[in-house]
């Protein structure tokens, strides 16, 4: 990484805690480069993460505001922060278990709402931090601690899941497609709406060793054949597609995207923290002569 980018990292906490061969370090680097490419102000950017290995990508490595939340909730925390201060760029970085299992509900609703946050899902297809349990992203038949005879449940296709929920910007790359990944992350960070990027990342320690891919090189060889550009994928016949996963960017047609919900509701000037405006009474509010206040909304029985 260029030394010019070092100020954006808390160098005193390096090296990262990631295992040898883990893909999350590649994603960490790609994020920093994409932030630089996108030209975003690090001091106006909030990185939100949940629980798990991927949640440690921004926290504490990024020299910016970071919010390391409870398990599964980073998107909900991010929603609050973004609505409270639309002057913040809000970027969620977390894992597949965090964002799509325990936090799956928040993910689909954020996509549906089209809130202007960027969600980067580091998908290593397993629960790494807890020792390697089956995830909703673990391919069928794969071995984990809790699928010792091979997983029997079909996994989510995360991109199709988010697209189905209305996600305006949806993308997938493996961390081996690092140039495309940086380019896509750059676009996602500046996208005016909800953006979701799945970064498929190898976990040799907990996933690879049980599934005949114990090294980074093994993952590279396997993923290279399996993950294909979406344009190539679209030209394949169904038989060819069967064991392939498309990568690339899917953006909804502009006229089908609803405006982000967090536009124009800024009540906190981005530079000051305290929203201490004095809420002046609005016109027509109540009235001054012993004025039983009309209850607004929720009126029971019209008559």
């Amino acid at each position: 990484m260029s030394r010019q980018l070092y100020p954006h990292l808390r160098l005193d906490v390096f090296p990262t805690p990631y295992c040898t061969g883990c893909g999350h370090g590649i994603l960490l680097g790609a994020m920093v480069r994409a932030m630089d490419e996108a030209g975003l102000d690090w001091d106006k950017t909030l990185f939100v993460s949940g629980i798990g290995c991927a949640a440690w990508i921004p926290s504490p490595h990024f020299n910016a505001d970071t919010l390391h939340t409870t398990h599964g909730r980073p998107i909900a925390f991010a929603t609050g922060a973004r609505l409270a201060n639309p002057g913040l760029n809000v970027v969620v970085v977390s894992g597949d278990g965090d964002l799509t299992a325990i936090g799956g509900n928040h993910l689909i609703h954020a996509a549906r709402r089209n809130i202007r946050i960027t969600v980067v899902c580091a998908n290593n297809r397993v629960y790494g931090m807890t020792g390697g349990q089956v995830a909703p992203t673990t391919p069928e038949g794969c071995f984990t601690q809790t699928s010792p005879w091979g997983g029997e449940e079909p996994p989510f296709d995360l991109c199709r899941l988010v697209m189905g929920a209305g996600g305006a910007f949806v993308a997938r790359h493996t961390v081996f497609q690092v140039r495309q990944l940086i380019k896509t992350l750059t676009r996602a960070l500046t996208f005016d709406g909800f953006a979701f990027v799945e970064a498929v990342s190898p976990c040799p320690t907990h996933y690879g060793k049980l599934n005949d891919t114990p090294t980074l090189a093994d993952f590279h060889n396997q993923m290279k054949g399996q993950y294909v550009d979406r344009r190539r994928y679209d030209r394949m016949n169904p038989e060819e597609q069967a064991d392939k996963i498309p990568t690339g960017v899917w953006i909804k047609a502009a006229d089908t995207i609803t405006p982000p919900i967090d536009k124009g509701s800024s009540f906190i000037p981005p530079s000051s923290g305290l929203g201490s405006s004095s809420n002046p009474p609005s016109a027509g509010q109540g009235n001054s002569s012993n004025p039983p206040l009309r209850s607004r909304g929720g009126q029971r029985g019209g008559i």
């Binding site: 925390f77 991010a78 922060a81 201060n85 906190i268």
Partner: peptide, 20 residues
């Protein structure tokens, strides 16, 4: 929000973003 867990989480995000 989509549920009460989301609600309280959004509150914390907002609180740290300077809101009451």
């Amino acid at each position: 929000m989509e549920d009460e867990i989301g609600s309280i989480s959004a509150l914390i995000g907002a609180s740290w973003a300077g809101a009451r």
